[in-house]
């Protein structure tokens, strides 16, 4: 593709190295971590836009599990980024699962045989996957916004959420799907919570951490991010700052901005 869409984030995520024909994330699991002060949801928006507009007529499909915001919210944001989610949805390339009001209780009786909550959700995902033609299955990207709300929906049974995420991970290895999850780093301060976060981090191939500036508020820099890309042989770590605008995000190295 041309140079217009290339930026530090794409580079750090390894999006630019891949050939056009391949799906951009290529079976990776991406975990985005943010905190109260700085939201990391813009990375999700960037990725969705990238998946839909990087290559014209590509067969990328995004399956979006929205726990945080209604469709209209994402639609407006993505439209400003130059990607029409409504149209993509009609074409079947953006599958929006509204989980705002859905509870996913996983009790003991749920284990016994009831297909409810997270079980049903995963069944839905596999149904979407099976409906895709064989060759296109690796083009599916599952996006979860966000995992902490999923825990709330499951009434705090973090083990089941972890199980669910693990199942999603097996899809990445089995079919070559990609998985993008957003979570909040600062809510796992206690011991058992920390285990949950560490497990998620362990399972991720790419870890994106979004933080506020260490030096405090700034008018023209919105925060900094660290991207850890776990390659097969060596890890690549990049650190840069960003400024979010309505139609794009600027990335730059600390101090490199005029």
């Amino acid at each position: 593709m041309d140079s217009r869409a290339r930026n530090l984030l794409d580079e750090a995520l390894g999006l630019d190295q891949l050939a056009q024909s391949k799906p951009p994330l290529g079976g990776k699991a991406v975990l985005i971590e943010d905190c109260v002060e700085t939201s990391g949801s813009f990375v999700l928006h960037q990725l969705i836009k990238r998946l839909h507009t990087a290559v014209p007529n590509s067969s990328n499909v995004v399956l979006f599990l929205a726990f945080a915001n209604p469709f209209s919210h994402y639609d407006r944001i993505l439209r400003k980024l130059g990607c029409n989610l409504g149209a993509q949805r009609e074409k079947g390339r953006f599958i929006f699962v509204d989980m705002l009001n859905v509870e996913c209780p996983v009790g003991e009786e749920g284990k016994a045989g009831g297909r409810s909550g997270l079980f049903a959700l995963f069944a839905n995902i596999t149904k979407v996957l099976n409906a895709l033609p064989e060759s296109n299955r690796k083009c599916l990207t599952i996006v979860i916004d966000d995992v902490s709300l999923m825990e709330v929906a499951a009434h705090g049974s973090s083990d089941h959420v972890l199980d669910f995420l693990h199942y999603c991970h097996t899809l990445t290895s089995d079919y070559g799907c990609s998985l993008v999850t957003l979570n909040h780093e600062d809510i796992y301060s206690s011991m058992d919570g920390l285990v949950f976060l560490k497990q998620m981090e362990y399972a991720a191939d790419v870890l994106v951490k979004v933080e506020p500036l260490a030096t405090g508020l700034a008018a023209d820099v919105h925060g900094q991010m660290t991207v850890l890309n776990r390659g097969s042989l060596n890890n690549r770590m990049s650190n840069f700052q960003f400024r979010i605008k309505e139609n794009s995000v600027e990335y730059f190295y600390p101090g490199a901005r005029a």
Partner: peptide, 29 residues
Amino acid sequence: STVRSANAVAIITFPSSLVSPSFCKRWQH
């Protein structure tokens, strides 16, 4: 989520010191 889909505004006050720190962060999110 119900407020979001309605023409309404909700305000909640809560004693943050009584909620455990990690849950307090969840509330804030």
